[in-house]
Every structure is written in structure tokens, then in C-alpha cells.
Design a protein around this nucleic acid. Structure first.
Length: 441
RNA sequence: CGGGGCGUAGCGCAGCCUGGUAGCGCACCUGUUUUGGGAACAGGGGGUCGAGUGUUCGAAUCACUCCGCCCCGACCA
């Protein structure tokens, strides 16, 4: 994509509406624009990142679950059946259609998926089953804030598991646990599993995955040693090994303020290993048994030939929130430093002097070379001052910058800069091939 | 919902206290010169001053009402 063509309205100054880093940078980098409190338009650059995150989640979840797509608008009936029509309270957006029929904009999908399940699955032989979708939700938050971190409209991946008994359901829970570790790891995030309250979803087993960040919303108390844990290479069908991993990781003290117990903390963790900070919740696992299957009559015939409510769990990831969380973890004073796995473009070419034939020819050549090699590239071909282009490329955080200028060309090279480290490699103008070698390593 | 703050050009702000018909920087358009870290000069365009009502000869400015947005608390992916 050429910079002269892309719709990328960047801001030089900090918008007054944004107080935290990720929000400020998303507005400045032309990723989002607010439409109403807690509701945002995703501009092309931001939308690319959002889709990249979505795809990381999708690719990993597909190994243990099947994707479908449920609607955003739901009938109020099933919510009345489950009892949450009242329980969910004002956070749930309710409205009527032209026939005065009551509808809601889904804040989550347990009722709907349970309804689908109950109408289509009858026997334990069809289990286990795990389904997920990635869909926009609406929760009428009391106070939306921090941009995309606590929007009212937000993109969420939510998975739902159906099993014939608790034992199998826990196995699925554990697979999700591993899947989440891998997903966040691929985004260069250190996510810590923390024992959690189940809130309005309900249930008796639950973990939150929390990213440590100063701008996080909840206080967390952890044993630092958990940060050194490496995710082992385990297959998803190896339930025993996964269970051991889950046990190992959940054995570390890690709690958000609502579950924190100071005495336990002092007992379990050495003073030097204590870390109290703030965190952003990016994922949540729930096992809740028959909480929804019972009221919604989602029964299966078991091996004895009797009907019993199916065992369920649900597993969420805040997809749009992750964009903010990743920025929070990967930025510096100049702007964003995207991890390659989610970056909107892998390489940014800056033609430092667009009206110089040699610079433009070389820039064009590199641009075409990268396109032909299927590398996502943003080419700043504008006839602007060098400073503007350099500062903007830093701001939007493309992981690799190629700088083509008269100074380098005179000496027969152009520059390849790594955004995060700031390291610059000089590459001979005749060796464009070595760009890829340097990037891929 | 309680507490605080803000609303004036696309963005950031001044003007309001003490009423006299709107200004600055950036951005934008034209031209010239520039060009390795947000350039210089010259010229130009853009505003129902959040909305309504009232006070007044006259309201961005004063009063009342409403709306929107941000920040702190309770809720959550």
C-alpha cells in the first residue's frame, strides 16, 4: 500500500479525549475514531491489526473448537428462560422491533448457543463439542473509558463447550487454558492466569488471564516466578500433560484484588518474589456445569439411556481490547512498536526524497520486490519533509523500516531499521534480496 | 448514579471574570525555495462559538434548562 493512497489520518498532537497511552496512540496513529462514548469506528490501519489478532485466535482455537457465527441481536425469550433478562440489569441493551417484540443486543451468548445445542444435539455420542465465534457484543457499561479497553461495543471471541460429564468438561477447560497461553504468547504478551470470580456468568471454576500493565483496571498480586514459566510443547489430546501444566501454573500465587488474601500471599510467596501491580483482563475461562443447560432444557441422553443436562463451560477473549493491551506492552516515547504477528504491515518504506529520481527508483524497486514476495508493506511515497515521514512511521509502529535517501544512495546503500531495537543495517542497493534474509533472520 | 472538569475551524487552545459581532498554533489549498527527524516565505479557504430559552440596544461572554464528552468511584472481555 502506498502512503499517498491509504486512508490514514494521523494526528500530530494528543487528542484531549484520551488519557492513557494505548488510547492516545490509537487515535494518533489513525487506527480508530470515536463515534459515541465507548463506541468506535475502526479505520483501515486499526482494522488490519484487529483482523490479525482475530486470526491468531482463530488459528489456535480451530485446533480444539469449531467456528460458527451467532447474531448480534437476540430474542429476549431465551434470556427470560435463563433468568438473566432481569439479572443482567441495565448493562444489557434492550429494545423492541416494529411488532413490539422485545429484542436485546447480545452482551454474551450462553443462552443462544445452549438453545442451538439443545435443538440439535441429543446424545452423549455427539460429545464432546466445542463451538466458538468472534462477534461484536454490546454492554452498556456504567462508565466506558480508556478507548478500546473498555468500550461498550467490543469484539469478543467466545467459545462454549458441551460435555457428557464434569471430568470431560474440565479437560476442555484445560485445553482452553493451554490454547490461551499460546494465543497470548503469539502476540508477545505475558498473560498470567489468575483465580477469578465468576460474576454474572456464574459457575464454580474460573480463571482470568491478565496482562500486567500500569494502566490496568484491577490490582493484581503475584508470585514473580510465574513470569519465567515457558509454555511447553504439548499436544491438545494429551489431557494428562495439560492437566499437569494447568496445576503447575495455577499453583503460583496470583490473584486480582477481589480474590486476594493477604495472609495467604505472605505465606505462599517469599518477599523478594512478591509483585503487586495492575493488570488488564484479556481472557476469561468459566466452568459452570448445568447453570444454563438446566433452565434451557439442554439435555443429552447418557450411556444409561437417561436424560441429563449437558455440562458446559464458556471461554472469552477480549479481541478489541487486546489491541490496546498489546500497545500498552509494546510502545516507546515515539509511538507503537508492533510485534510482527499483529503488525498492520511488516515493512515500511520511507522514500526520504520523493522528488529525487534515484531515491524513487530504488524505493519503487524495493516496494515491488516486497510485494512480489508477499510481504505486507506500506510505502511512504509522499513528497513531504523527511522528518514528517520518519516520525509518522515511528508512530504507527511498523516493525521494519526501510529508509531510502540520497545520503545512502551516494554510498551505495539503503537502511533497514528495526523499530523496537532501533538497530540499523545497511544494505547494498544491489542486494534487495537480503532484506528478507535480515527480516526473517 | 455520586463527585470533578470540559464543549470556540479537522486537531490543540486563547477569548468569557469586566457583554460591543471571533483569534492563535498546527493541519488544509496555491506558488516559490527547501529536503536524513514533525521546514521557510508569500498568498488563500474554512466557525449556526454544543443546543434551546431568557436578560439586554447588543450575548462566545450573564442566567436557566437540556445534550454531549472526559476524569475519579461501584461493574466487566
Amino acid at each position: 500500500m502506498r502512503r499517498s493512497k491509504i486512508f490514514l489520518p494521523t494526528l500530530k498532537e494528543n487528542p484531549s479525549e484520551a488519557s492513557i497511552t494505548s488510547h492516545r496512540l490509537m487515535l494518533r496513529a489513525g487506527m480508530i475514531r470515536q463515534s459515541s462514548s465507548g463506541i468506535y469506528t475502526w479505520l483501515p490501519l486499526g482494522y488490519k491489526v484487529l483482523k490479525n489478532i482475530e486470526n491468531i485466535i482463530r488459528n489456535e482455537q480451530n485446533l480444539i473448537s469449531q467456528e460458527l457465527l451467532m447474531p448480534t441481536i437476540q430474542d429476549s425469550e431465551i434470556w427470560k428462560k435463563s433468568g438473566r433478562f432481569e439479572d443482567y440489569g441495565k448493562e444489557m441493551l434492550k429494545f423492541k422491533d416494529r411488532h413490539e417484540h422485545e429484542l436485546i443486543y447480545g452482551p454474551t451468548n450462553e443462552e443462544l448457543i445452549t438453545d442451538i445445542f439443545s435443538k440439535n444435539v441429543m446424545s452423549y455420542k455427539s460429545l464432546p463439542l466445542c463451538l466458538y465465534h468472534i462477534q461484536w457484543k454490546f454492554r452498556d457499561e456504567i462508565r466506558p473509558r480508556f478507548g478500546v479497553m473498555r468500550g461498550r461495543e467490543f469484539l469478543m471471541k467466545d467459545a462454549y463447550s458441551f460435555d457428557k460429564n464434569k471430568e470431560d468438561s474440565i479437560k476442555c477447560y484445560n485445553r482452553m487454558f493451554l490454547s490461551y497461553l499460546r494465543i497470548f504468547n503469539k502476540m508477545q504478551l505475558k498473560a498470567i492466569p489468575v483465580a477469578a470470580d465468576t460474576g454474572p456468568i456464574g459457575g464454580d471454576l474460573s480463571h482470568e488471564f491478565i496482562i500486567l500493565a500500569e494502566t490496568g483496571e484491577s490490582d493484581v498480586f503475584i508470585d514473580k516466578n510465574i513470569l519465567n514459566e515457558v509454555i511447553p510443547d504439548i499436544k491438545y489430546d494429551d489431557s494428562d500433560k495439560i492437566a499437569k501444566l494447568v496445576n503447575k501454573l495455577t499453583a503460583f500465587y496470583a490473584a486480582a484484588d477481589d480474590k486476594h488474601n493477604e495472609d495467604k500471599y505472605l505465606n505462599a510467596v517469599k518477599k523478594d518474589d512478591m509483585l503487586q501491580t495492575r493488570g488488564i483482563e484479556v481472557g476469561h475461562l468459566f466452568y459452570f456445569g448445568d447453570k444454563y443447560s438446566k433452565p434451557l432444557d439442554a439435555n443429552i441422553t447418557n450411556i444409561e439411556g437417561n436424560n441429563s443436562p449437558v455440562e458446559m463451560g464458556s471461554y472469552g477473549i477480549g479481541v478489541s481490547r487486546l489491541v490496546g493491551a498489546i500497545i500498552d506492552a509494546h510502545h516507546d516515547e515515539k509511538g507503537i512498536c508492533w510485534p510482527e504477528s499483529v503488525a498492520p504491515y511488516i515493512v515500511g518504506i520511507i522514500n526520504l526524497r520523493a522528488n529525487d529520481i534515484l531515491c524513487s527508483e530504488l524505493s519503487d524497486k524495493i516496494y515491488n520486490y516486497l510485494i512480489n514476495n508477499n510481504i505486507e508493506v506500506l510505502y511512504d511515497d509522499r513528497d513531504e519533509g523527511a522528518g514528517i515521514k520518519l516520525a509518522e512511521m515511528d508512530l504507527i509502529g511498523i516493525p521494519w523500516q526501510i529508509r531510502v535517501g540520497p545520503r545512502g544512495i551516494k554510498n551505495g546503500y539503503f537502511e533497514l531499521l528495526n523499530r523496537e531495537s532501533g538497530n540499523i543495517i545497511e544494505i547494498s542497493v544491489n542486494e534487495t534480496d537480503s532484506i528478507i534474509k535480515n527480516i526473517i533472520g
